[in-house]
């Protein structure tokens, strides 16, 4: 919702919307430092809930560094180190949108570390799957990574952005009915 105007909140309220949930997302450019993410996490845990409340809308969010910015593991780890402090915020639903973008080794490594944070803090997981030609391969790699964490309950994982060719994969493998 950080990219939405106050008029958008008004339109949501008029349409009967009671709550929104906002995954941590790529800003349209790569942030230069972890401090930028600290401010962003404050924005979606402190400021946006207040802005939404003015329109009687409950605001919830998810925390992570989006896979689009996961190619720099040093920066990604600095950002992930910030997450536990914000998990105490009452509007935080879990870790997300984590996942893959171009299906690179660094993205996969940072995905694994996000899953570990969710496991360590008993958090829900919201998954972003890649776009276009990368979606099928990325969805398979993501599901493998999730299933490698035996303590992750598939019932506490949402795989988003599925399409006709990846929805059955997510349902069947995610529910352990292979």
């Amino acid at each position: 919702m950080v990219s939405r105007t106050t008029d958008d909140y008004m339109a949501l309220a008029c349409a009967g919307c009671k709550a929104v949930n906002e995954p941590a997302f790529w800003a349209g450019y790569d942030r230069a430092s972890a401090q930028g993410f600290y401010d962003y996490f404050r924005q979606i845990t402190e400021y946006e809930p207040k802005r939404a409340a003015k329109f009687c809308i409950e605001h919830y969010c998810w925390l992570c560094i989006n896979p689009k910015e996961a190619e720099d593991p040093g920066l990604a780890r600095e950002v992930m180190a910030l997450i536990p402090e914000f998990l105490k915020s009452p509007n935080v639903l879990g870790i997300g949108e984590i996942g893959l973008n171009k299906n690179s080794r660094n993205e996969l490594m940072i995905l694994e570390e996000h899953i570990q944070i969710a496991e360590d803090h008993d958090q829900l997981i919201l998954v972003h799957t890649p776009h276009l030609e990368d979606k099928l391969k990325g969805t398979k790699l993501i599901i493998d990574a999730l299933l490698n964490h035996s303590k992750i309950n598939p019932g506490r994982v949402i795989i988003d952005h599925v399409e006709e060719h990846t929805a059955p994969l997510s349902w069947i493998r995610g529910s352990g009915q292979e």
Partner: peptide, 19 residues
């Protein structure tokens, strides 16, 4: 229209996709 390779790529040199 999908990539059917199975191994992660070495590095992401771009952020977009081509279809």
């Amino acid at each position: 229209l999908s990539d059917h390779t199975e191994e992660p790529i070495e590095a992401a040199e771009i952020q977009g996709a081509f279809g």
